[in-house]
Simulated assay, not measured.
Amino acid sequence: MQSIHVSRVFEADAATVFDVISDHAGYASLPGVRRAWLRQTGDDHRDGVNAERVLDLGLARIVERITEYDPGNALGYQIIESPLPIKHLGARLLFETLPGTTPRTRVHWRSQLRARTPLVQAPVAFAIARQMGFAYGIALRIWARRLR
């Protein structure tokens, strides 16, 4: 199993950061994402629990199901459809309000995955986890700049 963890400090309050990161439409502005849309809306909020968001990456599509939606605190999801040879065990973003006189929030993005084929599990899962961690870091950097 591979674990990924990236974090970044945002110069904004947790509720604002959560709104930006949880909005499915905003993913279309990330590198490599052509379009993003909801295949299914969430139970209590458009982007909430049980929402299924589709990320069109050009040659591939990834479908994620929201598993946790706690505005300003936590957002969880699981990749349920992907051409990648992995089983995504889930991801969770935690929004930590930092002390100080100006609003600042640290976002922790954790994810776990394993390869579907046991014989190549270690190298495949390792390579994909590295790429996912790199992509998460870029996404956090873009969103942090947007909120300055």
Rank of each mutant, 00 (worst) to 15 (best):
P123G: 02
A135T: 07
F134M: 09
A122H: 12
F95D: 13
A115M: 03
L98P: 09
S111H: 06
R114F: 02
L98D: 14
M132F: 06
Q112I: 04
S111P: 02
R106S: 11
P99V: 10
T101L: 14
R116V: 03
G100K: 15
H108I: 11
Q131A: 07
V120L: 15
S111R: 05
R106K: 14
S111C: 09
A135W: 09
F134Y: 07
L94S: 15
T117K: 06
R110E: 14
L93E: 13
Q131M: 04
T117E: 05
R130G: 05
E96P: 08
V107P: 08
R110Q: 08
R106T: 08
P103E: 14
T105H: 09
G137N: 06
P103V: 11
R110G: 07
L119I: 05
R116T: 08
V124R: 04
P103S: 13
A115I: 01
V124F: 02
R110F: 02
I128S: 01
V107E: 05
A127K: 03
Y136R: 05
P118K: 08
S111Y: 04
A115R: 00
G137K: 01
A129K: 00
S111A: 11
T101M: 12
G100F: 11
I128Q: 03
R116N: 11
G137V: 00
V120G: 08
A122Y: 05
P99G: 10
E96Y: 13
I128R: 01
A127Y: 00
L113V: 03
Q131P: 00
P103K: 15
S111N: 07
L113R: 02
L93R: 11
Q112C: 03
G137H: 07
F134A: 09
G100S: 13
L113G: 01
P103Q: 13
T97Y: 04
F95A: 12
A125Y: 03
F126S: 10
V107L: 11
T102I: 15
L119R: 04
Q112H: 05
Y136P: 01
H108K: 07
H108N: 14
Q121Y: 04
G100R: 15
L94A: 14
G137W: 08
Q131Y: 11
G100V: 15
R114E: 10
G137I: 00
Q112V: 04
Q112W: 10
P99E: 15
A135D: 09
W109R: 09
V120R: 08
T105R: 12
Q112M: 04
F95T: 13
V120D: 04
R110P: 04
L93M: 15
A125Q: 01
S111L: 09
L93K: 08
R106E: 13
P123I: 03
F95N: 08
A135P: 00
T97M: 08
R104W: 13
T102V: 15
Q131C: 01
H108W: 13
L98C: 14
I128H: 02
F126G: 03
P118C: 01
Q131F: 03
R106L: 13
R114C: 06
L93H: 07
A129N: 01
P103R: 12
G137F: 02
Q112A: 03
L94T: 15
A125P: 01
G137P: 04
G137E: 08
F126T: 07
E96H: 14
I128G: 05
R106G: 10
F126R: 07
